[in-house]
Design a binder for these strands. Structure first.
Lengths: 211, 211
DNA sequence: AGGGTTCCATAACGATCAATATGAAACAAG
DNA sequence: CTTGTTTCATATTGATCGTTATGGAACCCT
């Protein structure tokens, strides 16, 4: 059930560039400079592909960005699986924040979070792009909430646990860490923030028959 | 010690628009749509002032934005005073987060935070504008840290209180709430996030001779 | 070798960008 | 009323924006 990995051209001149590698470069460019503020000229330079080839391969700038954003965000199902694998919702969120802190301070990638910065604001023309980014965030939020409520149902968290508040806080800290990273905060600083943001979680209910 | 309120023109044609009101409109436009993604054409429409008048009154787009941003952020001294007035650092930060949650969900202003969204990313040309926004954030961070350390010195907080971590967390939550607000979160949601983000603060040391 | 098809590089499209040149209009002072 | 000064509205600047038309080049199939 993969998205057609190679349409297998039967005829015509073969593609002279690696579409996947070019998309990766585009993603990095958008990550660095944002959607509207990254020009086609910037993209041709970053991707090593001329403008007509970009349009032939990706449609237009908007679709290229959306594809780059999906590549950045990854399959939501993967996050869901990771959340399902984690022993508790708390562990899952802690991992998510830790991964974000690490990702935002990579030395080979731009600082911060593409989802947080690339479409933080913009003109009316780009409203649908911002909405697409918001949709990604909402998907993450839904996964967090669902995992917390699963723990509540299993008796691992108190019934009065505020699942939405905890999820919103995790999301806010994630997006906020992006700003800190852009401002130059190092990895340890973000990891400390991530950890500090989780002390509000209710104490887990330890199962009597465990161990 | 106010910034000259009216240079008192002695001669020539008088200004036909209210400079201060126009700046306010520009601030709202940048708040809504960001620095680079708000065009001069957008600004003339929002401000009700023609382009040459904008350039005469504010210099260029960059200086107009910087002035609008200073207007948005207000005098850092005011925040410092508010922090000094608060009974504890914890109260000061709680107030700051609460005010942010309220500001970001105003119904007469754009959603979110101008400092967080207007210069979250952008082209190389606007690097200095982003740096100016970062400087504002660093100033806020410094004020928070100083106030926390003041409480530590006064014995209101444990000596091992992580002042920088708490300040970074507060800043991250503030900037993160801006994203939530832009995504449509309501005021109560943000207020709940703000409150939840503060439970990690160490218990205050109650003075024996108080009361 | 000769179609058929697809991609490449070059160059250009109209639109919009930030910023100004120009000259008339509106005021104060003499 | 004239002169000096400043702002006004109009129109335009060169540059860059996203996008595309054009024609040759590179490949598969017969």
């Amino acid at each position: 059930m993969k998205t057609d990995p190679a349409p297998r051209r039967k005829t015509g001149r073969p593609l002279s560039f690696d579409r996947d590698a070019a998309l990766e470069k585009a993603m990095l460019a958008f990550w660095e400079s944002g959607y509207e503020t990254t020009s086609i000229s910037d993209l041709t330079a970053a991707m090593g592909v001329t403008a007509p080839s970009i349009y032939a391969a990706f449609g237009d700038k908007k679709r290229l960005f959306l594809e780059a954003m999906r590549r950045y965000a990854g399959d939501p199902g993967d996050l869901e699986k990771a959340f399902a694998r984690a022993p508790t919702a708390r562990d899952a969120v802690a991992d998510m924040l830790e991964n974000a802190a690490t990702l935002y301070t990579g030395d080979v990638t731009p600082k911060g979070c593409l989802l947080a910065s690339a479409a933080a604001t913009g003109s009316k023309d780009a409203a649908d792009v911002r909405e697409a980014a918001a949709k990604e965030r909402r998907a993450i939020r839904a996964i967090i909430i669902a995992r917390i409520e699963q723990d509540i149902e299993r008796g691992l968290l108190p019934p009065d646990t505020k699942s939405r508040v905890l999820a919103d806080l995790a999301l806010a800290v994630t997006q906020g860490m992006s700003v800190l990273a852009r401002d130059g905060a190092d990895r340890d600083t973000l990891l400390a923030v991530a950890k500090a943001s989780m002390v509000g979680w209710p104490s887990p209910i330890v199962g009597r028959n465990a161990v």
